[in-house]
C-alpha cells in the first residue's frame, strides 16, 4: 500500500442522495477522493471510489459502517496501490449490439482478446423491451497488435444477429 489509498466499493438499492451521504461523511473524516466510477446497474447503486485515508482500513470501515447501515448498502474496502496520473489512452472503440442472449460478452471479448485487445473500459446495457431485450456494449481499449487484427477477428468470428462496429480513436492534442 502506498499513499494510503483504498478502493471503496458500495452496492445497494438505489435511492437519491447516496453519493452525497458517503462523500460528506468521508470528507468530514479527512478523506481525499481519487478517481471514481458510479453507475446504476439494474436498479442498483454501484460505485468504486478511490479514497485516500491515513487512519488505515479498519478505521475507514468504521467511518462508513453507520452510513451503510442507514442507507442499507453493502461496502467493501481494499487497500490498494494509488495510481493517479497514470491514464492510458485507448486507441480503439468497439460497440456491439444484438438480441440479448447468453454468451455475447464471452464470444466478443474472447475474440478480441485473442486478437490483442487490452480493455480499458467496458459498459453495457440491456435495452429494448421485456419480450425483445437488446444487449448493447461499448468497449474502449488498446489494440496491442494493431486495429486491423481486431477488425479481421471480428469479421471472421461474425455471429448472426450481433452487430459489431469498430472505430479507431484518434485523439487530437491541441
Amino acid at each position: 500500500m502506498t499513499n494510503n489509498w483504498h478502493m471503496l466499493t458500495v452496492v445497494g438499492k438505489d435511492k437519491p442522495g447516496i453519493v452525497a451521504s458517503i462523500s460528506e461523511a468521508l470528507f468530514a473524516a479527512g478523506c481525499n477522493f481519487g478517481e471514481a466510477s458510479m453507475s446504476r446497474l439494474g436498479g442498483n447503486f454501484t460505485i468504486m471510489l478511490m479514497v485516500q485515508y491515513e487512519g488505515g482500513t479498519e478505521r475507514l470501515e468504521k467511518i462508513i459502517a453507520p452510513i451503510a447501515q442507514t442507507l442499507n448498502l453493502r461496502c467493501h474496502i481494499n487497500a490498494i496501490e494509488g495510481q493517479l496520473h497514470a491514464h492510458r489512452e485507448p486507441d480503439v472503440r468497439i460497440s456491439v449490439y444484438g438480441q440479448d442472449r447468453t454468451g455475447i460478452v464471452a464470444h466478443v471479448t474472447g475474440t478480441l482478446a485473442r486478437a490483442g485487445l487490452d480493455i480499458y473500459d467496458l459498459e453495457s446495457d440491456v435495452g429494448g423491451s421485456g419480450e425483445n431485450p437488446v444487449y448493447i456494449m461499448h468497449i474502449e481499449g488498446h489494440a496491442m497488435r494493431g486495429v486491423d487484427a481486431l477488425k479481421e477477428a471480428l469479421e471472421t468470428e461474425k455471429t448472426p444477429g450481433i452487430e459489431t462496429h469498430l472505430e479507431e480513436i484518434d485523439t487530437i492534442i491541441g
Binding site: H85, H87, E89, I169, D170, T171, I172, I173, G174
Partner: peptide, 13 residues
C-alpha cells in the same frame, strides 16, 4: 464525437 486532449490539460482526454 471525437476524443480530444490538450497541452494545457495534462493527463486527461
Amino acid at each position: 464525437k471525437g476524443r480530444e486532449g490538450c497541452m494545457s490539460v495534462p493527463d486527461y482526454t
